[in-house]
Structures are given as structure tokens and as C-alpha cells.
Design a binder for these strands. Sequence first.
DNA 1: TATGAATGAGCATTCATTCAT
DNA 2: AATGAATGAATGCTCATTCAT
Lengths: 220, 220, 220, 220
Amino acid sequence: MPPESRTFIEEARRAQIIDCAIEVLATQGYAHATMARIAARARVSAGVISYHFGGKQQLIEAVVEKVAGLATDLMVPRILAQPTATEGLRVYIEGNLEFMRLHREPLLALVEIITHAVSEGGGPGPYAAQAETAITDLMKLLDWGQRTGEFRDFDQRAMAIAIRGAIDAVPARLLAAHPTGDPTGDPTGGPTGGPGFDLDALAREYVTLFTLATTGRNPS
Amino acid sequence: MPPESRTFIEEARRAQIIDCAIEVLATQGYAHATMARIAARARVSAGVISYHFGGKQQLIEAVVEKVAGLATDLMVPRILAQPTATEGLRVYIEGNLEFMRLHREPLLALVEIITHAVSEGGGPGPYAAQAETAITDLMKLLDWGQRTGEFRDFDQRAMAIAIRGAIDAVPARLLAAHPTGDPTGDPTGGPTGGPGFDLDALAREYVTLFTLATTGRNPS
Amino acid sequence: MPPESRTFIEEARRAQIIDCAIEVLATQGYAHATMARIAARARVSAGVISYHFGGKQQLIEAVVEKVAGLATDLMVPRILAQPTATEGLRVYIEGNLEFMRLHREPLLALVEIITHAVSEGGGPGPYAAQAETAITDLMKLLDWGQRTGEFRDFDQRAMAIAIRGAIDAVPARLLAAHPTGDPTGDPTGGPTGGPGFDLDALAREYVTLFTLATTGRNPS
Amino acid sequence: MPPESRTFIEEARRAQIIDCAIEVLATQGYAHATMARIAARARVSAGVISYHFGGKQQLIEAVVEKVAGLATDLMVPRILAQPTATEGLRVYIEGNLEFMRLHREPLLALVEIITHAVSEGGGPGPYAAQAETAITDLMKLLDWGQRTGEFRDFDQRAMAIAIRGAIDAVPARLLAAHPTGDPTGDPTGGPTGGPGFDLDALAREYVTLFTLATTGRNPS
DNA sequence: TATGAATGAGCATTCATTCAT
DNA sequence: AATGAATGAATGCTCATTCAT
């Protein structure tokens, strides 16, 4: 069913179910995110999901779309607004980590999906392409910096993998630090050094780290 | 059953089954790594696994032990042999990536297990602690470098997360580049630039990248 | 799910499944009372039982509750209505044996469960306490008789074990006499003397027997 | 293989395995009495049991034979030696309960088998006949007493079922009182009134009880 | 004689999906 | 538009039995 032909109430149900799916995925993990549980959280019968989405696969896809949309909305305009690639990289890193702070649950849900969703055969997961896209997008930013001479001569793909890997490692640490709870509480003992988890401080460290790595110079 | 009381043939079967489990995990993913499939690959009845390992959980644990053993054997002595923390970091990175080259499938299997194994209660996976241990181990290496003055003043935990994240991101790229096949063939177009995947070149890039990031200076 | 929140159709299915479970337990025994067989008798998929009861254990518990309810409803008011302990004992015996006549299958099912259900740890079965409760309840009746002077001076527990043992032995004889069939047919050759099985006559004999045993006097 | 053609060592193995089966049956129950566990207790491979007995069914049968033999050896000569049926009944009861004291485990094992062993179809267990035989044997004793005029006019079968039921109820109480341990310790608070379980006192109560029931008179 | 490796049938359970209401 | 009852395939596991050594 194309979006424009959906009624308002239909759209609302879909949104509600997607949000519940995100909640369950983020808090209980992919393995426990069964149709029944998602439906229960939405105070809705299990069949409703099949009714609105056609199947679990399509629900998952809808979640991915929503979360990816959130991320794109946040990031793309910011990066494009920067005058230099160095600034662009800074904003890229900050934006990613800010996204984790603002949209913790959607992000965790997305991570669950990307790492756990499987295709019918034994091949790579259906969302592996997302990761590849993220790499190539980042490579464009790096290429910009190398063409302007801001960045030193490194292998773009290697650097992109490193940067994305460093960023993608954060949610798991986030989850380890706050298995079920709220990350906003008391960040003690440095950026990542206590029960709290200071994403802003982490962002500053990452910016310095990767500015050094890409330019060879400390950020001014 | 303690190892020393196992028959030779028993040990052989165990090893065979562990290898088959690794194969299935690496090529088909955790979700498809059912007892039946692992047994089928070993050309063996499904009950045999329960007979030799007691259950799926123990089989998984045996896989983890084996792979972790491989990694430890490869890495620990090398790192300890280095005169400086900078060299230690270099060897840490090179060792990790070399491990991926030498033991691609075991590593992929381990990643599958760490990211997918769930505990009954819905909490963090039973092997989540492994990841945390890796971080703290790496922090010790970074602390060494800061105390000797080789490394600049950064947050150890942030840097450790970045380095491990960059390393841990590689297997997925490896998998994306060679979904089922052999990574040793034709590395064309630079370190990570083609169907081939030149782990040695990637290691060199990573070493430069993180030496800059930690010391602020190019590696000599 | 609390009973009052169940649909009418849900309650009907539950009742049907419980009845089928009773049938299978009574006619084929605990060992053969698998989910598949019970479901098959109900002309229903096996998963339906898990759907309505959550698991086999809960189904068994539901059977116990139903049968125990039947028994309590039949017995308790009768006994409490008696003026003397002697009459109470008579009614206790008659009530138990009448229950066997009226609810042969439920009783046999209950016996199967009590004797066969096992706890995970290897300890006493989860329904062993039922038997002990039956003993202590009976002891209260005996105590009543001793305090009024109707009963002679015997050990209450020993007498209670004997009476309950005598009663509990009946179902097995019932089963031996009518392995699969209908107990209402032709009672020939005395109370328990043929393929028929006259529970009323047996009750009369038991009443005389235990009245003598408890009072030392023939029942008037 | 007929007994006389068995070697001495063969016979010893059989006896050892039978004893271990009795132990496991008595202490862990029929459900947990798997071939593997029995074999383990005998410090022997599981295949050995099949080798010596042909299968589990035959092992069980061998256990039954052994225990029934023990009981017959103990009881029959005693009963036949009595001058009157009243004395015979006394000795019958005492003998049965003494058997429980002397051969607690074999008896518990036998009870487990009789109550749990199943035939392939859904019919009565393969050892149900044993119980029937016990009833008819006891009826002969009662018939003796009625023919001599010692016993009053009751239905022999009803009385036999009551007596055997009372006796057969004891092992379960024994088990409830001493789930795993030794019944010989401290019998406090009367025949059956404490943590201990005084079988001698219970026997005295039973003798009085059933002498009253059969004769209408207190035992002199 | 005895072993222990291996089998295969049977078990309870979970879950996405379907469909009459 | 929604329900919830029902399905059927798949999973991990247990266990008596078989058989080459």
C-alpha cells in the first residue's frame, strides 16, 4: 500500500507499532523482539502487525527507514554547511554521537537490526548494504579533505572504516554502561570513566583523535 | 568431563564438531547455526553434539575458548616483547589484523557469538564481558604509553573504544568483501579498494592512523 | 491470565483440553500423556495447548485443580453435616468411593499425576504434598472421634494412613477390573468379585471394617 | 540365556547392575532411572546393561524378580507356620512392614516399577498382575480364617484390598518422611508422629486395627 | 566381555503467520 | 480495522538401543 493511500488512523497505528518495535528491540534485543511482544507493548493483537505491515520483515524495514530518516535529517544539512572538510569531519563525529544521545533507543534498535537480521539463505544480512553506504558516504568527506589538502595522504577506505568503527562501537559501550536505564544521570570520572557515560566528552576526544589522524595536526 | 580424561577419538570428534560449528557460524550466521545444521556439516547425527558437549551452550563455549585461545597465543607474547608502548600499540594492531587473515572463519564465528548469544533473562549477552575485558586490557597498554610520555594526554577509555571499534569493524568489511569465498586472492586497487582485501595494507594504515592519534607524531 | 478475563470460547477450549488430558491420562497413563496425544484427542494442533495454558506443567496443574475441586465440592459439605465422628467417617468413606463411581476418569487422571509428576531436582513430586494433606485432614476427623470418646485409643496417623491407603488402593483395582471400559455393567459375584466392580458394596464393607477398627464395635 | 549357563562373573555383573538399578530407582525415582544413570552408578558403560539383560525392560523384570523373591523368602514360611489365621494375619502384616525396614530400597524400587512401568499400548502396566496376585493370596488367608470361624463374615476381596492398600500406603509415607536418608534414626513422638518413622509401632497399630476389623474382637 | 561413539525417534516449546469473526 | 484462536515448522534436548572395536 503506497503511503499516500493510507488513512490518517492507519498511519498513526503504523507509527505506534514502529515505536513499540523500537522500544522492544532496544530494551530486550532482537532475539526477544517477537511479534507477540511488540504487539503486547502496543496493547494490540499480534495479527495487527501482519495486517499493517504484511509481516515481520516489513516491520523491521519500516523501523530501519524511520531511524535512518532521523539520522539523515540530523546530519546531512549540518555537514554540508561546513566550510572545510576538517570542520565537516568534526560535525560528522559530533552529529553521530549527538544522535546517540538524542535518539538512544532508535539507534540501539537499528544496531540490533543491522547485526541480527538475516536473509533466508546464509548470505550477508539484508542491511549490510547500509553499512557499506555509510562507509562510502564518509569516504566522500575524506576525499573532499584530501583534495583541498587539509587531510594527509591516507587510504580513504581504511580511514573511513576506522572512523565508522570507532563510532559504531559506542552504542555497545552505552548499552554495557546503562543496560536498561537512563544515560543522562551523573557522568563522573571523565568522558567514559564511570557509571555515567558522557557522550559530549567522548565526542571531543574523538574529534581530536581523528583530526590528528587525518591531518597530522592538533585541532586549533 | 575434564580434558585429560578424554579419549583421543573423543577429542578428535570434539575438534571436528567445533570446526564445523565455526564454519557454520562464519558462513551462515548465528541464527542458522542450529544443532542440526552443525551436525549435518559434520556428517553426524544431531544427538552426537549433545553427547560430546552436553548441549548447544557448551558447544558455543568450546568455540569461544578455542578462538580466544588462538588469539591469545598469537598476541600476548608479541606485545609483551616490545620495548615501547608505541611499538606495543603497533604490534597490537598488526596482531589483531593478522589474526583476521590467519583465522578468518574462527574470528567471524566468535563475532557472531559475541553479538548474538543471549542470556535467558534478557540481560546483556553472556559474552558481553569479553568485549569489556578487551577494552580494559587495551587501556593498560595506553596507560603505559602515557606514563612513559610517549602518548599525549587523552582519555584512555575513549581511545581504547576507538581503537577496538576500528579493529572490530574490519571483520564485517571482510565479510562484505568476500561473502563466502577466499580472501587470499588478488588484492587490487589499494589496501581496501577492491574485491580483494589487503589486510597488511590496512594494518599499515591503522598503525599510522593511531600512532598519530596517540602521539601526535608520524611514526618514524 | 485470570479466569475472569477469559473469553467464553477460550474457557470452552480450556475445558475441552482439560477433559482430553484427563481422558488420555486415565486411559493411557502419564507416560503416554504427551502434548501431541492430548492435542490429537482434542483434534487440535499441539501448539494450542501451550497457547491456552502456557505449558504442560500448567495444564497438569489445571487438571489437578479441576479434579480436586470436584472432590472437595462433593465431600466437604457432607462430612461437616454429620452429627458424630463415626457418621463423619462413614460419609468420608462413602463419599470417596462415590467419587470414584461418579468421576472415574478424573480420579484416575489425578492418581496418575500424583504418582508420576516429578520435580526437576529429583526430590519428591510436586503433588506429594496433596497426599500428606489428605492424611492430616483425615487425622482431624479421627481426633474428633477420640475426643468425643466414640473412637478407641489408637495412633491417629497410623489409622489415617490405613484408611487412606485402603481407599487409594481402589482405583488401581478399578482399573484392573475395567482396563478401558465402562464400570457400570453387570456387577456379579459380590462387591468386588467379578469383572464388574460394585463400589456401593465395597463402600459398605469399608464402613463396617473401619468402624470396627476405630470403635471396636459393629456399626449399628 | 538360561541362568545355569551363565558364568560366575556374568552372574556377578548382573547382580551388581540389579543392585545399582534398585539404588537409582529407590533414590531418584523411575523417571530418572535411565540406563545411563544406572550404568554410571555401576561404574560401567551403558551398553553393558543391554549386553547382559537385552534391554531396559528385562532389567526391570530382573529387579522385580529379585525383590519379589526377597519378599517371598521372608514371608511365606512364617505365615504357613502359624496355628491360626488370626496369627497368620498378624504375621502377614508384621512381615510386610518388617520387609520395609529390612529392605527399604528394594521395596521402594519395586513400588516405583509397579506404579510407573508401562506397556507399549495404553493398557495396564506389565506388573499390574503382581498386585492382583497379592490380593488373591491374601484372600486365601482370609478364607482360612472365615472357614475356621475366626473371622467374621466380610467380603474377602474388599478386606484384602483394604489390608494391602493400608500396607502399600506405607512406603510413600516412608519416603515422605525420609526423602533421601536413613529411617533408623530417632523415632520420636509415637509410631508415625515425628521425623522418625517407627515401623514396629506402626505394625502393632495395624495388627490391632485389622484384627478388630476381621474378628470384631480386640487381639488378646 | 566390555566400551563408548553414534543413532533416531520422541519430547515440550516457540513463533510468524493465517483467517473466520 | 481489529481480534485472538489456531497452525505447523523448527529448535534443543533426552534416551534406549546398536555396533565396531
